[in-house]
Design a protein around this nucleic acid. Structure first.
Lengths: 228, 228
DNA sequence: TTCATTATTCGATCATTAACGAAGCATTTT
DNA sequence: AAAATGCTTCGTTAATGATCGAATAATGAA
């Protein structure tokens, strides 16, 4: 029998099979939050080893579903563009209509968006608030891609030993892009020191085994006063 | 390390892996014509044996992407619903944008690009022309992702029974993305009715065994007059 | 410097599943 | 009735691809 039907359009099986692997689907779903995540985090998310995740990520990059920014020894992976997110959402909506099984969004996700640790510094909404507050108070100065120290009053209030930090080779201040907020926030040894101080002062603490930072009500007030 | 991120939404990998197999992708693409095809025809389309196709079709049925009507010793398979067609089109558009090389332009492709059936409605250049014309005449109203009915005069001219269409649960109007034009065109029960009317009026007809819609010279003029 | 961490590549193994021959069942044809 | 057709199920084979251990490279920390 002859083949009568025109094969038209691009090959949908390539894209679909990329999304079709469970590990890759988990990776993509995790990235759908808009956060840029490291290879290790994505490996955890997909419940595979780092090597396996690396192989998957290579394929996703090659298939133009995912891109990454190298930052130090980390690679921050994110979805390539809005089209990818939109396609994944389409499939989700479709799958939801075929399959009643839905998974709820847990409260932890909200917390993560609110305040989380990014390597060793504060990220999420509170991370942005910290950055904005310091900038507003002239404690830091930003010029394009470069960031520098300004008025040190706030850091002195926090009793942070700036001098010893400045002795290290490691940069005191660095810009770190937050993909959930699409904004810069603060990284570097000073940012780390600030977060450590917040914890020492009892303003915030890490939730064990997670990246969540939990601010106490009083801690939040003190934080706001500091940057007022 | 523990998994910290909440997985949200249904499992997209099941659906994607169903579409991800080349043979199944060919089957689904063939069914995008809207025609119900037998297992044998689909086996040919996918270039596999009947047994293999049978296994694939079972999976597609189980995954609710495809349904069939048994008629004697034949089984006529078709896409489950318009959502499936719409999802497949989405993936096509996406794949086309990522991989331009995959789009082949054969001689018959010209006809396909001009006017073809997309599941059950008109696509291609004529599909775009229909959409634009209806919009220009105020017969439809578009607001972002949403589309609604406007002035019904044109549909009355075509003697389309709008009332009975509106009684159905199926949406009358829907936006369908066209992979070749990268533009929206009209889908939904009304779009289907319009195409059926074009055929009834002798303005156009399906080329057997393909997805091509052929407009007669007079039909094309009537079409243009209608939307003038 | 040295050690730890992050992520990659290589190589081998293992699991999944697509594929098809053969057989079975149902329906239509002769 | 028997034969032919359409489709499926069974059982086996083969190939693709996911997985992980080990090694490598690069960066950060001490």
């Amino acid at each position: 029998m002859k083949v009568n039907y025109m094969r038209e359009g691009p090959d949908i099986s390539k894209v679909a099979s990329l999304i079709g692997d469970p590990a890759r689907a988990n990776i993509l779903t995790a990235l759908l939050s808009g956060k840029a995540l490291t290879a290790r985090e994505l490996a955890c998310e997909a419940a595979v080893t780092a090597q396996t995740a690396s192989a998957h990520l290579s394929k996703l990059v090659e298939g133009k579903l995912v891109s990454f920014n190298a930052s130090g020894r980390h690679r921050y992976y994110k979805l390539m563009d809005e089209d990818v997110a939109s396609l994944l959402e389409s499939i989700m909506v479709f799958a939801a209509s075929k399959d009643i099984l839905k998974i709820r969004t847990g409260p932890k996700d909200v917390q993560l968006r609110e305040a989380r640790i990014c390597y060793n510094h504060l990220a999420g909404e509170m991370g942005i608030a910290l950055f904005d507050g310091l900038l507003r108070n002239g404690a830091i100065e930003v010029e394009g891609e470069y960031i520098g120290l300004g008025d040190t009053e706030i850091f002195e209030t926090l009793e942070i030993d700036l001098a010893s930090l400045q002795k290290q080779r490691r940069p005191i201040l660095r810009l770190c892009l937050d993909w959930s907020m699409r904004r810069h926030h603060l990284a570097g040894s000073l940012a780390q020191a600030v977060l450590e101080r917040f914890v020492e002062l009892g303003w915030a603490k890490r939730v064990d085994g997670t990246r969540i930072i939990e601010f106490t009500p009083n801690g939040r007030k003190s934080f706001e006063n500091l940057l007022a």
